[in-house]
């Protein structure tokens, strides 16, 4: 290969690498935002549009801020790595910890930054039947619609629960060292609202 050709090849490879990196960065940025319900209006089929909006909401539901406290087992997870909670704690009878290690012993009414401890007056983990960890978005969707697995709620109730509940809202104000859930709680609530009004269709996977 002539040196000029070799140089052109190197430049091309470098340009390709840069463009791939840029694409990755753009994708990462997008994962921190939520698309509005209106942005799905180009999907003519109502069921497909509904499922697409739930898929967008799935960026929130599968985020560590949510899944960590919707664990598959009896121990919550923590951090953006979703490691098992340390110290070792368990849900207990009511989801607020065991008799001798209640969540509220460490988790105060608000985040306590000097201790890097998140907080809320109702800090607890979701009931066992609301486990999301390890589930596909389709499975989470089916579960979230099922009153047996969603705390006896109608799908309409989920608009308020996800859109305005203050414990859910903590996910967007998680304190230092924890990535907030994508978008805003208001945007997530708008997606739930639009999803419910279009039939609450679940994605295929």
């Amino acid at each position: 290969m002539k040196s000029e050709t070799r140089f052109q090849t190197l430049v091309s490879v470098a340009a390709l690498a840069v463009s791939m990196h840029a694409g990755y960065a753009a994708s990462q940025a997008a994962s921190n935002t939520l698309a509005s319900p209106e942005s799905f209006s180009s999907i003519a089929d109502a069921d497909a549009r509904s499922a697409a909006m739930f898929t967008e909401l799935g960026k929130v539901l599968t985020h560590p801020r949510c899944v960590n406290c919707h664990p598959a087992g009896d121990r919550p997870r923590q951090g953006d790595e979703s490691r098992l909670h340390q110290p070792p704690v368990e849900r207990g009878i009511d989801g607020h910890g065991t008799e001798t290690m209640r969540c509220s012993i460490c988790h105060q009414k608000a985040n306590f930054e000097p201790g890097r401890v998140p907080g809320h007056p109702e800090w607890h983990i979701a009931p066992r039947e609301m486990a999301w960890e390890g589930k596909t978005l389709a499975e989470i969707c089916a579960q979230i619609k099922d009153p047996v697995h969603n705390g006896g709620r109608k799908v309409e109730d989920l608009i308020h629960h996800i859109g305005t509940d203050t414990l859910v809202g903590w996910a967007w104000q998680p304190g230092f060292g924890r990535a907030p859930a994508p978008g805003t709680q208001k945007e997530a609530g708008a997606l739930v609202d639009a999803w419910v009004k279009t039939g609450a269709v679940c994605p295929a996977r």
């Binding site: 110290p87 001798t100 012993i105 460490c106 000097p114 401890v117």
Partner: peptide
């Protein structure tokens, strides 16, 4: 590690331990 744990006495006579390093 819980080397910082102290005992908290409830008014009902029960007690529990609490860490102090991360609690205001």
């Amino acid at each position: 590690c819980l080397s910082c744990a102290v005992i908290v006495d409830n008014p009902d006579g029960t007690s529990y331990t609490s860490p102090t390093c991360i609690v205001p």
